[in-house]
Design a protein around this nucleic acid. Structure first.
Length: 413
RNA sequence: GCCGGGGUAGGGUAGUGGUUAUCCUGUGGCCCUGUGGAGGCUACGACCCGAGUUCGAGUCUCGGUCCCGGCCCCA
């Protein structure tokens, strides 16, 4: 039996990679125009980096291992923690804000399903050093711009954790975290039961339940009515005003909660259709992780895009290149090499290495979908005029090498 | 970790206990020494792995594995 690829991993064939690289190219264009610069962190890190961030419980979902020096290591399951670690290690004195992006593979030991793999790619950004509404809005706007350029139709949901935290401020942090988790899961019954269990004040319950049910255009005024004029609502309103200025449509959703303590304020999620149960293609928010990793009290905001999930619904086909297959005879093979080398400065060129006859070479050109066949027989070599055959139309013309180069590169633009 | 559906050449498939596993497609070669896509011939190529039942297993049973969808989780 042949060796299979590991569970939850994928092979990417040439056609897949053409499409993936094109999406990657589109994303890179956008983030660099917004002033973000690429960073790369190691594929594996000390296990502790992730347990510090997310708790011991995540170890079960990690590809962790002990190395030969008895160090507890893990393949990275995400990139926010590594980038924050990198910031603490080497970038604390850089001018702020720092605008970083990454595109790397990550690994999680989970049960694969649609849009979920054990090795997957994340494209993300981290904006470090600002906690202004402007930073929050910029990050959201960047995410939406990227998805739009990829041709993805999606729903943006924006929330603000500070508001729920305000409501829960009389509870201890453990109780707050638990409630946030239940809210995030939209587990209404579990939430009711838990509020009952901890005997939460009736006023708090009423405010919480009403708050998380608020949605749509009226959500903000209603929230003001419910909670009064608190600074968290003012901040949220500023973010929304900025999003309006960016021309971005959003749904207010106080139900995006996220149970982890390092999220500070704005949170957002983006959903796309056609993806089954794993429909979230992007998630982000503002958080404070840097102190946890031994750095200063530096706020940051970021998001990660599930690159593979985008690929599932991405239907842009990159323009094919003007591939040329050179067709030679036994007597012109040596001449063909120098011509191939010249053309390879401009376009992809195939030169027969199978010792095929004339007809088979042409047939090969057809089979690989080449745009042109360049016929280099004795006649052409002696005349210095080569026969360029358009494989789509079947038409062919006699041209000099320079004319051919002009034709091939001109059509590329 | 749990639930359901699956696994026969590279791709798509037929085959409900019985010779040498079917067909389509693909790929290589030839028909065809300067003109591709069609056609003909030919070659290549598969029962996911293991155990069990049986005179005999692609077919039945069990375990494993991988795929698809879902639960959990989603940092």
């Amino acid at each position: 039996m042949t060796i299979q690829r590991p569970r939850g991993t994928r092979d990417f064939l040439p056609h897949d990679m053409t499409r993936r690289r094109y999406l990657e190219y589109q994303f890179r264009q956008v983030v660099s125009r917004w002033g973000y610069q690429e960073v790369v962190t190691p594929t594996f890190e000390h296990l502790e980096l992730f347990t510090m961030k997310s708790g011991e419980g995540i170890v079960g979902e990690l590809y962790n291992f002990t190395d030969k020096g008895n160090r507890e290591m893990t393949l990275r399951p995400e990139l926010t923690a590594p980038v924050m670690r990198m910031f603490v290690n080497e970038m604390q004195a850089f001018p702020r804000p720092l605008k970083l992006f990454y595109f790397e593979n990550c690994f999680r030991y989970e049960r694969p399903q649609k849009g979920r793999f054990r090795e997957f790619w994340q494209f993300g950004v981290e904006l470090i050093g600002s906690e202004s509404p402007d930073a929050d809005a910029e990050v959201i706007a960047l995410a939406i711009t990227m998805l739009k350029i990829a041709g993805i139709r999606c729903d943006l949901h924006v929330g603000y954790l500070g508001i729920i935290r305000h409501v829960l401020s009389s509870l201890n942090t453990e109780q707050q975290s638990k409630i946030m988790r239940l809210v995030d899961k939209k587990d209404d019954k579990g939430l009711d039961d838990y509020l009952e269990e901890i005997k939460a004040p009736i006023n708090l319950r009423m405010q919480l339940l009403e708050l998380i049910s608020l949605t749509g255009k009226e959500a903000l005024p209603k929230a003001y009515k419910l909670l009064g004029s608190i600074p968290e609502l003012d901040t949220f309103q500023k973010i929304l005003t900025l999003l309006d200025a960016y021309g971005i449509n959003y749904t207010i959703d106080f139900g995006i909660a996220r149970g982890l303590d390092y999220y500070t304020g704005m949170v957002f999620e983006v959903y796309a259709e056609g993806l089954g149960a794993q429909k979230q293609v992007c998630g982000g928010g503002s958080y404070k992780l840097i102190q946890l990793f031994g750095g200063g009290d530096v706020p940051s905001t970021g998001f990660g895009i599930g690159f593979d999930r985008i690929m599932e619904i991405y239907n842009i086909e990159p323009e094919p290149q003007n591939t040329v297959v050179i067709v030679t005879t036994d007597r012109t093979r040596l001449n063909a090499i120098s011509i191939a080398c010249k053309l390879r400065e401009y376009v992809p060129v195939y030169l027969d290495i199978m010792n095929r006859n004339f007809k088979s070479q042409l047939s090969y050109a057809n089979n690989i979908g080449a745009r042109y066949a360049l016929i280099l027989g004795e006649r052409e070599i002696s005349e210095g005029l080569f026969t360029l055959k358009d494989m789509n139309s079947g038409r062919q013309e006699s041209l000099t090498l320079n004319e051919i180069i002009v034709k091939l590169t001109g059509e590329n633009k």
